[in-house]
Amino acid sequence: MLSFPNAKINLGLHITEKRPDGYHNLESCFYSVGWTDVLEIIESDKLTFTSSGISIPGNPDSNLCLKAYNALKKDFDLPSVHIHLHKVIPIGAGLGGGSADAAFTIKLLNEKFNLKLSPSQMEDYIRPIGSDCAFFIQNYPRYCYNKGDQFEDISVSIKGYYIILVYPAIHVSTGEAYAGIKPQKPVIPLKEVLEQPVSSWKDTLVNDFEDGVFARYPVLATLKQTLYDKGALYATMSGSGSTVFGIFEKEISVEEIFPSEYLVWSGFLQQ
């Protein structure tokens, strides 16, 4: 069976407070986009994982897809499978690609072996694997809070707008992103900002990570300005970086705008 785990972007991101457990509470809106990996699961004599496309760092035995399989294996008599992941979404780019791969593994196994898990049950299985994994189970725009693993429905749609995502081959570590962050509540609640037209977001829809990350990697600030210069209604960094995206009213050509070593995805938003 095949599935296509998709990336997400953050529409606004506020670090609101430091938690007693050392993590941070945040608020954001996760929004699905059409940049996808390819995931295949077939029955096999033994549990195996392989990958192609973008090289995945680390030990393959600790891949999030295998962690998702093992989370279900504890409670279900799953047969052995071979999992193959063709990696297209850049890694460590603020797009949630690895989290999507894990969540889609849960969904694919649920469908393939008729486990009859509800969406909320699948979210409970995947949540311990990564803070934003649970979003990809239902995979529609959600307001997220706490560690980014709790969700509420939110009425926001940018369906039909054209989006360009640019990954400039820069890896921003979590530690770098949080360095210098001073948690605080936003002046205007995120939900109120998202109720306004996209054309008004430029000065009000903020990613708290931008100031610190842009200071370390000025090229990201240049990318954001380039998107505005090309007519974006709104442009920002996604998550903790380093992908920068722009939202446009109509399709524009991205050829010759960005250096060849950058990864670029563009398309119309479908939800």
Rank of each mutant, 00 (worst) to 15 (best):
A7R: 02
I9Q: 00
N10S: 04
L13Y: 00
G22D: 07
L26A: 12
S28T: 15
W35S: 01
T36E: 06
I41Y: 00
L47Q: 06
T48Q: 13
T50D: 06
T50N: 13
S52Y: 01
S52L: 05
G53H: 10
I56C: 03
P57I: 15
N59D: 15
P60Q: 08
N63H: 11
Y69S: 02
A71S: 15
L72W: 11
D77S: 13
H82T: 09
L85A: 06
K87N: 11
K87L: 10
G94F: 08
L95H: 00
G96P: 08
G98S: 14
T105E: 08
E111T: 07
K112P: 04
S120G: 01
E123T: 03
G130P: 07
A134E: 04
I137L: 03
C144P: 10
K147W: 12
D153R: 09
S157T: 13
Y162I: 15
Y167V: 01
Q184H: 14
K185C: 01
P186D: 04
E192G: 03
V193C: 02
L194P: 00
E195Y: 11
S199N: 12
W201T: 13
D203R: 09
V206Y: 06
D208N: 10
F209A: 07
F209V: 02
K224Y: 02
T226H: 10
G231T: 12
A232V: 03
L233F: 15
Y234V: 07
Y234W: 08
A235V: 04
S240L: 12
S240V: 02
S242D: 03
G246T: 10
G246R: 12
F248D: 07
I257R: 09
E261W: 13
Y262N: 12
